[in-house]
Nucleic acid binder design. Structure first.
Lengths: 224, 224
DNA sequence: ACGATCCTCCAAAGATCTTTGGAGGAATGG
DNA sequence: CCATTCCTCCAAAGATCTTTGGAGGATCGT
């Protein structure tokens, strides 16, 4: 039966995509790419691995057609092949979090949520409403590089490292909301905590850029 | 920095779920489990692998909390841990098909679609409408085992092997619609082709049980 | 054309996965 | 309590993946 071979081939090809999501390093790269495009070197630096290693992993992702590239001079910029890839990754994260106690525990340990931190959350819909009314100070606390690669329209880039300096100017600002990479990212948590310590009342977008992009919402690139 | 360790652990745990989807054999098992629960032995037989091998793969899926088990006497029945798992698998398939030309080609070769086959498709919504009106002959052409493990309410079990015998009785039956496992399954294609050869005009549900389950639609178990 | 930069490819070592047969454990029925 | 059935666990061989440093390709500026 030649048909069994063809069926096997279908699953083999499918597994290529599955395998691409089957390495912690590659998932880290996908998470970074969900923030916007980056060069190989920048990815390697951000994910803390050698350039060769990063390149190899990126080839795996490319073979699975999950990422696309753009050449600019000697640099090669990688990006997710589409919003559907971000959506798939977000869905996988959601299932993992829902199903696996291990993931939940690892996440809690990383995000260091004592429970009381969970006040002051803003949903995507509410945020869009606030953005429409203009009565909001939306802070993008990711590294500037990621802000430039794509951010929520109306956001202001205030990387975590510079946030302490800006805290004074934010005192009394209307409706301060911080966001970062996504629901697995600790930066917005830190930002809200830091601002609270400085006497600035701030809230946090309940997830972040990854989910914003997954939802197909508008993303602004470049601009300072 | 102790925080990097904790972040790594998050991705490590996530990768456990990704890895689970990273083997053709396991994907085949997931596809079967999306049809309904099955024993280890039945899964091994259906996916054409040794019992030890099947068990090992099932342990991987279980470790990722993607499947659950139920013991009945000496038998252990495996099932998907929830509809969200079916949804994730369906999403992965959709992305793979959309993004990867290889997947598309492998699928076309397997399903053997010359293009003209794509007449007579019925969507899920239309099918639900027909089911409500009662003016329909819905055929479940999967193996009886899978029908018993869960089928669309109102369907009649007519496994492919017995379809030729039933064809006569279907001549002139109202609105014959066949379905099988899902959009990666060839059985409903074959059924429509076979019925057409017997002079019975039949249509095909555009996908199948996997997508039906993913959508959270009602599934009937047992019953003959 | 040359050097510099950035990336990919190569080869090899080490780590991890897969597959197998068979031992061992759990449940059942006599 | 023993034999049977069905599954999981174990160990080992074989296959595949990951990581590395360095060679080699592409592109740019001079």
């Amino acid at each position: 039966m030649d048909r069994d071979d063809r069926r096997s081939r279908v699953f083999d090809e499918l597994a290529v995509v599955g395998k691409a999501f089957g390495s912690a390093k590659r998932l880290e790269l996908v998470e970074l790419l969900a923030q916007g495009e980056r060069t190989v070197e920048a990815l390697a630096r951000a994910a803390d691995m050698g350039v060769s290693t990063a390149s190899a992993h990126l080839q795996v992702l490319k073979l699975a057609n999950l990422v696309a590239t753009r050449r600019e001079g000697t640099k090669v910029h990688y990006r997710l092949a589409g919003d559907d890839v971000a959506r798939l990754y977000a869905a996988m994260r959601a299932v993992a979090r829902e199903r696996s106690a291990d993931v939940g525990r690892a996440l809690d340990a990383y995000l260091n949520i004592p429970g009381s931190d969970e006040v002051g959350l803003v949903g995507r819909d509410e945020l869009q409403g606030l953005l429409g009314s203009g009565a909001i100070t939306l802070l993008d606390v990711r590294p500037r590089e990621e802000f430039l690669a794509g951010h929520i329209p109306g956001a202001r880039s205030v990387p975590l490292g510079t946030l302490a300096d800006e805290a004074g100017g934010l005192r009394g600002a209307p409706s301060v909301v911080a966001y970062c990479r996504g629901s697995f990212c600790v930066m917005a948590h830190d930002a809200v905590r830091l601002l609270g310590g400085e006497g600035v009342e701030a809230r946090r977008l309940e997830d972040g850029m990854l989910e914003w992009r997954s939802a197909g919402l508008p993303v602004l690139e470049g601009v300072a």
